[in-house]
């Protein structure tokens, strides 16, 4: 198992819970806001709740985007984005105007909408079933349609990804959306694995052990 896990601290997100889960799984979480430490890590977690635009501003101001890119030049480096952290991996988001993301996966992020045909509650809050892709390492040993905890108003669109390079798990809230993505060693979950009971812990264990 990967021992040292660097949790990128850009001021947004429940770092305590992510760190607790990593500790519980027997690894050593290090919360860091030092770009050099991030660039030198080979196991990164990008957590986050809040506004996409604000998050990207903070990430760019502190050059965390460059640090992440540098870390990923090492072919052994793996990255897990959680919730907003997954959305940030995408190409762009329509939150507060169009904001470019880190562009590590090509998907776009947009807001849920409720209308007379499909009435949904926004934000999407609570446990929802996730359809996991075949041959996924992230979902190894996790039964299909297991429940994970979501809390978000924006979602990553399924369209626009390369099926030969990526595995995409989906969930439904009015529309189908990306619940989790794995593209090589770049992984992301829209749900909070650290808040998703034993299935979530299993997924985090898979990330630590199988990538």
């Amino acid at each position: 198992m990967e021992n040292k896990v660097t949790i990128i601290d850009y001021g947004m997100g429940n770092l305590w819970s992510v760190a607790s889960a990593i500790k519980f799984l027997g690894a050593d979480p290090v919360v860091s806001h030092d770009p050099i430490e991030i660039a030198n890590s080979n196991c990164l977690v990008l957590p986050g709740v809040g506004s996409f635009r604000r998050a990207m501003e903070t990430i760019k101001t502190n050059k965390y985007d460059q640090a992440i890119a540098e870390a990923l030049t090492n072919s052994k480096t793996k990255l897990l984005g959680i919730c907003l952290g997954m959305q940030l991996l995408g190409a762009s988001s329509t939150e507060d105007g169009v904001t470019p993301g880190l562009g590590l996966v090509p998907n776009l992020v947009t807001r849920f909408s409720s209308n007379n045909d499909i009435k949904i509650k926004i934000p999407h809050i609570g446990f929802s079933e996730v359809k996991s892709p075949k041959n996924s390492s992230l979902f190894a040993n996790i039964p299909d349609n297991s429940c994970f905890y979501f809390v978000h108003s924006y979602f990553m669109e399924i369209a626009n990804y390369d099926v030969t390079k990526s595995h995409v798990a989906t969930a439904t809230h009015g529309t189908d959306f990306v619940a989790a993505i794995e593209s090589g060693r770049i992984c992301g979950t829209q749900f909070h694995p650290e808040k998703s009971q034993k299935s979530g812990l299993q997924l985090m264990r898979n990330f630590l052990e199988r990538f």
């Binding site: 429940n14 819970s17 809390v151 808040k195 979530g200 812990l201």
Partner: peptide, 27 residues
Amino acid sequence: DCFAPIAAGGGVNSVKEAHDLLRSGAD
């Protein structure tokens, strides 16, 4: 060691107080 969603509050009257709760395990 509780891997379930947590909300916390009580008299929250500043961004700092909210921030501290979110840093102590609250989502």
